[in-house]
Design a protein around this nucleic acid. Structure first.
Ligand code: MN
Ligand code: MN
Ligand code: ZN
Ligand code: ZN
Lengths: 137, 137
DNA sequence: AATGTAATTGCAAAAGTTTTCAACTTTAAC
DNA sequence: GTTAAAGTTGAAAACTTTTGCAATTACATT
């Protein structure tokens, strides 16, 4: 469960739904809104899906939650305090591999130096073909 | 308009709808399915939106069209022969800047060498904060 | 030119996500 | 503990994208 104060400190009201959404994201790691809803329903069966969507967005606005895009479709959410890494998504088999953020350090620096662009390299996945699928070609 | 032969060569049937969808993507550059549909409707008013979605997917399967993700939401489509570049998307103002693919060459090589991962660096946009928005902070 | 087959289309329904709005809670002030 | 103001919720509607299916169309064969 989430500490009551941490939500109030962010200027948010403390509702059971909001508290549970945050707790669910923290326990689940990467998760879709639907998965968060399922988790929340264990203790609060009546929660509306739109309440989950809205709270994920609200919690993201105050920096407690973040979203990333792993596939072609919707976003997945995770707690902001989770250490982030790169996601290597294979377009053939769908696997999601991890790589340390450092792997992109030079790239990030290049974009900063040449374009003044500050990159959040883990917001979108890195898309391509994994080693296993490459071998099979 | 698309050359009849190029569609048949890919094993696809030549329908007015398909021909027009391909032509629209080529003329529009980056475009959403809805924008493609609008364009097609100029000459083929009755076309169904799902036909547009399906043809975009089909044309992508045979390599005539590609999609990328520029924002949090749906994909945008472009002709496969368009030279690709990196998309630098600003999460604050929404601007979409371009950078040459080479800017990511070292990064791509690192992922290949260390993880055996072959990166398609323009499938997802590069997300972050643009120079203009950074100054304003 | 007529025929058969399989791909494609339109339409309707489903699935996924966002928005609107009245009713209900939370919170701060009294 | 009441009260008032502002934020939040559930329910329904709107929007976006995908899927199922019967009717139509493109294409190869005769
Ligand atoms: Mn995609
Ligand atoms: Mn996003
Ligand atoms: Zn793979
Ligand atoms: Zn910007």
């Amino acid at each position: 469960m989430a500490d009551p104060n941490e939500l109030r400190e962010k200027g948010l009201r403390l509702t059971p739904q909001r508290e549970l959404v945050l707790a669910a994201v923290r326990e689940l790691g990467h998760s879709t809104p639907e998965e968060v809803a399922e988790k929340v329903r264990l203790t609060h069966p009546g929660i509306n899906l739109s309440t989950v969507y809205r709270n994920l967005e609200t919690l993201e606005n105050v920096g407690l939650v973040q979203h990333t895009h792993l596939g072609h479709g919707g976003a997945t959410y995770h707690a902001a305090e989770e250490i982030t890494h790169l996601h290597l998504v294979c377009g053939i088999c769908g696997s999601v591999g991890d790589a340390p953020i450092d792997a992109a350090a030079n790239f990030v620096n290049t974009l900063a130096d040449d374009y003044g662009f500050k990159t959040d390299v883990s917001h979108f996945a890195i898309y391509g073909t994994c080693a296993t699928c490459t071998e099979k070609l």
